[in-house]
Amino acid sequence: MSDAFDYFRAYAVRALCKARAMPRGRMKHLQLVAGRIYNLLKNEAAYGPNAQHLEDFRAAQKLESSLERRPSDRSGGRLAPAVPQSADREAD
């Protein structure tokens, strides 16, 4: 067994646990997809070393990172309104 198997297994477990904690919807589905990708990579790594699965691993990591950014980007591209300064600061 290689180290890749252990790493992919850890990523799969983390991704699937994160998906279980999410509410129903598209984001949960995509998180499950990332977990399944890690699981498939784990199975491939169990049979022998393979450098080709690194591209798939990077794609799954990119998907997960985009899922983490997406909830904070729900403003639709609009900028947040400016916060007015307090009167105390203006008096200084």
Rank of each mutant, 00 (worst) to 15 (best):
M1D: 13
M1T: 14
M1R: 08
M1L: 08
S2V: 02
S2L: 04
D3P: 02
A4R: 05
F5Q: 11
F5S: 09
F5Y: 08
D6A: 15
D6I: 13
Y7L: 10
F8Q: 01
F8D: 01
R9L: 11
R9K: 10
A10S: 12
A10L: 05
A10V: 06
A12C: 08
A12H: 08
A12E: 14
V13E: 15
V13M: 13
R14Q: 15
R14C: 02
R14K: 10
R14A: 15
R14M: 11
A15K: 03
A15P: 08
A15H: 05
L16T: 13
L16S: 15
L16I: 06
C17Y: 07
K18T: 12
A19G: 11
A19W: 07
R20W: 07
R20E: 15
A21R: 12
P23C: 01
R24I: 01
R24W: 01
K28C: 07
H29E: 15
L30E: 15
L30Y: 10
L30S: 10
Q31I: 01
L32W: 03
A34H: 06
G35W: 02
I37P: 02
Y38D: 04
Y38T: 01
L40R: 08
L41E: 05
L41K: 00
K42G: 07
K42Q: 14
K42C: 14
K42T: 10
N43Y: 12
N43I: 11
E44K: 09
E44R: 12
Y47K: 03
G48L: 00
G48F: 04
P49Q: 05
N50S: 09
N50T: 04
N50P: 05
N50G: 03
Q52K: 08
Q52T: 15
L54G: 01
E55V: 09
D56A: 13
D56T: 08
D56H: 09
F57V: 04
F57Q: 12
F57A: 14
R58M: 09
R58K: 12
R58S: 11
R58L: 11
A59L: 09
A59R: 15
A59C: 06
Q61K: 13
K62C: 10
K62S: 15
L63S: 10
L63Q: 12
L63T: 08
S65C: 04
S65K: 02
S66H: 07
S66I: 02
S66W: 07
R69N: 13
R69L: 13
R69M: 07
R69Y: 10
R70Y: 14
R70K: 09
R70P: 02
R70I: 05
R70E: 14
R70A: 14
P71N: 00
P71T: 00
S72V: 01
D73P: 01
D73R: 03
R74Y: 07
S75M: 10
S75V: 06
G76E: 13
G76A: 08
G77T: 06
R78W: 14
L79P: 05
L79V: 09
A80Y: 04
A80C: 05
A80T: 07
P81M: 00
P81V: 01
A82S: 10
V83L: 11
P84R: 06
S86T: 12
A87V: 11
D88W: 14
D88F: 12
D88L: 14
R89I: 09
R89C: 06
E90T: 03
E90V: 07
A91S: 14
D92F: 09
